[in-house]
Amino acid sequence: MLHEIVISGFGGQGALFAGQLLAYGALEEGWHVTWIPSYGPEMRGGTANCTVIISDEEIGSPLTRHPTAAIVMNLPSYERFEPLIAPGGVLVVNASLIAQKSQRADIRIIYAPANDIAAELGAAQMANVVLVGAMLAATGALQFETLDQVLDKHISARHRDKLELNKRALRRGGALAV
């Protein structure tokens, strides 16, 4: 079992936090896991990405050149990572912000209008969670119930009121990949 997942977007879209949700989930399920951010001067508006590796074996490199799954939240991220996904891998595209359609036939692609879904649910900041849901449904990397527990534990105090909404966002994303 090996999932090498990249999550990439503008700073402020929650790419790093989405990756941490996965890392906490993997820890919860007892896997080996690493989370590593690109830590350049990426504040709101710049690009930010992180790599999460989940494995049943000791993890060597915490970085990967060819992720088995990627969540791309904006166009620069799509352009960077779409060609790099390993054959047989999964690409989750934030279709609310990315109009491009991939020509690749060797990977599974899910177009998730994540910003629209999140806004419809009542909190636009949850687009990242919608995308995580789609990725998890497509890869089976972690159980949804595990992510519920992680949200219970790690959602910040100021977003506490949106806990249940986040769980719904996760499943709305998951429904896109069934």
Partner: peptide, 10 residues
Amino acid sequence: DGNIGQMMEP
């Protein structure tokens, strides 16, 4: 190095 400093692991 920076990666060890920034990385999260259990």
